[in-house]
Amino acid sequence: MSFFDDANLTKAKEILARYPRAKSAILPLAHLAQDQNGWLSPEAMEQIADLTGCTAADVLGTCSFYTMFKRRPCGKLVVSVCTNVTCLVVGGPEVLDHLEERYATEPDVTVEEVECLAACGGAPALQVNYEFHERVSPSSAEEIVESYKSGARRARTVSGAPVA
């Protein structure tokens, strides 16, 4: 019983072919799993283990090291707000607080505090499914999230892959 659908299984094989050692494919395959499933489920990790010839514990050990992999179901929209020093002194935390409160009860929107996004030239900055938005304010940030919800903006997958 395969976790990956046929199209992604083909992609998985391509990914595996890139590397001299199958284990190298764990990260890209985990991204692929999130593109398909919206989070990194145990079933996904078990199949990644099979594909890479590792144990499931091995895959869990690797994937749990990286913050982009969500091991619990999360919203369709992951809003990552930077509060590192540059954003800290120009209003990042205020944006975070506002969005957290605003979307506290919306399971489809996961708001998270993140480290420096390399967008300090446009601080405060945030990402929605890894698409950048700079010089945001609490209200503009909310408008941005809403525009994704309404479909006015097309969101990438929770792992940041473009959706065709």
Partner: peptide, 27 residues
Amino acid sequence: IVVHRGAGAYICGEETALLESLEGERG
């Protein structure tokens, strides 16, 4: 050239952690 995507770990910028990560290990 093979492009490999990280997944959220600053330490993987350290060159040997990067290599570990590239090999599918914890960074």
